[in-house]
Amino acid sequence: MARRRRGLSAEDKALWSRVAASAVPMHPGRKPEPPLPETLAPPPQAPRAVAPPPPPLALHDLRIGKLAAAPASRVALSPSPPAMVHAQPLRMDHKTHRQMTRGKLAPEARIDLHGMTLNIAQPALTRFILQARAEGRRLVLVITGKGREGGPDAPLPVRPGALRHNVPHWLHMPPLNQVVLQIRPAHRRHGGEGAYYVYLRR
């Protein structure tokens, strides 16, 4: 790409005139060469606004394989399934609820969603709950699995177990919310954190 020639300033022209006037021609008989055509200087441009440089990285931001510190609002996740389930008000008989949470009530039916995709698990859960209600069952067990959790070196916050997170939401949505009375995490003898007790309405 050819460079554009810049024009001479007034000071440069005056200096060149003085040098040219004091110069002695080497060949007096030769016709003087015509002066070089002046090039027009480009119009001055307004200076561009320069964005301020980014702030320097803190030392903890440079650790390889570590999650850099970030505002809590950026990494905050919705409430975990156990927290959401425990926040549900008690709607069933207190004595029956205590026996259920202690694992002293045997589930009358169970479904294992572990390993299913969300698209397959949701309709399977809906059919199971509605069928159990039609058969007059009260306590059923829904197995989701615990799911994988992101370790301390995970690049992003990871929600443990998509099924474990979504099943309580599905049970609170139509049509299941009309037949489900109570949801609680299962006792360890029935799967612990990887399963839910679902107590159905009469």
Rank of each mutant, 00 (worst) to 15 (best):
Met84Gly: 04
Met84His: 10
Met84Asn: 08
Met84Asp: 07
Met84Thr: 09
Met84Glu: 14
His86Asp: 15
His86Gln: 11
His86Met: 13
Ala87His: 09
Ala87Glu: 10
Ala87Ile: 04
Ala87Val: 07
Pro89Asp: 05
Arg91Asp: 07
Arg91Leu: 15
Met92Cys: 12
Met92Lys: 13
Met92Gln: 10
His94Gln: 13
His94Asn: 10
Lys95Gly: 07
Lys95Asn: 08
Thr96His: 12
Thr96Gly: 12
His97Leu: 02
Arg98Trp: 12
Arg98Val: 14
Arg98Leu: 15
Arg98Ile: 11
Arg98Phe: 13
Gln99Asn: 11
Gln99Pro: 05
Gln99Thr: 11
Gln99Tyr: 10
Gln99Asp: 09
Met100Lys: 12
Met100Glu: 07
Met100Asn: 08
Met100Pro: 09
Met100Thr: 15
Met100Trp: 11
Met100Val: 15
Thr101Glu: 14
Thr101Gln: 14
Arg102Ile: 07
Arg102Tyr: 10
Gly103Tyr: 14
Gly103Trp: 14
Lys104Pro: 04
Leu105Gly: 04
Pro107Glu: 06
Pro107Trp: 05
Glu108Gly: 07
Glu108His: 08
Glu108Val: 08
Ala109Met: 07
Ala109Cys: 05
Ala109Lys: 11
Arg110Asp: 05
Arg110Lys: 12
Ile111Trp: 05
Ile111Ala: 03
Ile111Pro: 04
Ile111Tyr: 06
Ile111Phe: 08
Leu113Asp: 03
Leu113Tyr: 11
His114Gly: 01
His114Trp: 02
His114Met: 02
Gly115Ala: 03
Gly115Met: 02
Met116Cys: 08
Met116Tyr: 04
Met116Arg: 13
Met116Gln: 14
Met116Ser: 11
Thr117Phe: 02
Thr117Val: 01
Thr117Ala: 06
Thr117Pro: 01
Leu118Phe: 09
Leu118Pro: 02
Ile120Lys: 14
Gln122Arg: 12
Gln122Gly: 06
Pro123Lys: 04
Pro123His: 00
Ala124Leu: 05
Ala124Val: 07
Ala124Phe: 02
Leu125Thr: 02
Leu125Asp: 05
Leu125Lys: 03
Thr126Asp: 02
Thr126Phe: 00
Arg127Asn: 13
Arg127Ile: 13
Arg127Trp: 10
Arg127Cys: 06
Phe128Arg: 00
Phe128Lys: 00
Phe128Cys: 00
Phe128Gln: 00
Ile129Lys: 03
Ile129Gln: 06
Ile129Leu: 10
Ile129Arg: 04
Leu130Ser: 06
Gln131Asp: 15
Arg133Glu: 07
Ala134Gln: 08
Glu135Thr: 10
Glu135Asn: 11
Glu135Leu: 13
Glu135Ser: 09
Gly136Val: 14
Gly136Ile: 12
Gly136Thr: 09
Gly136Tyr: 07
Arg137His: 01
Arg137Ser: 00
Arg138Lys: 08
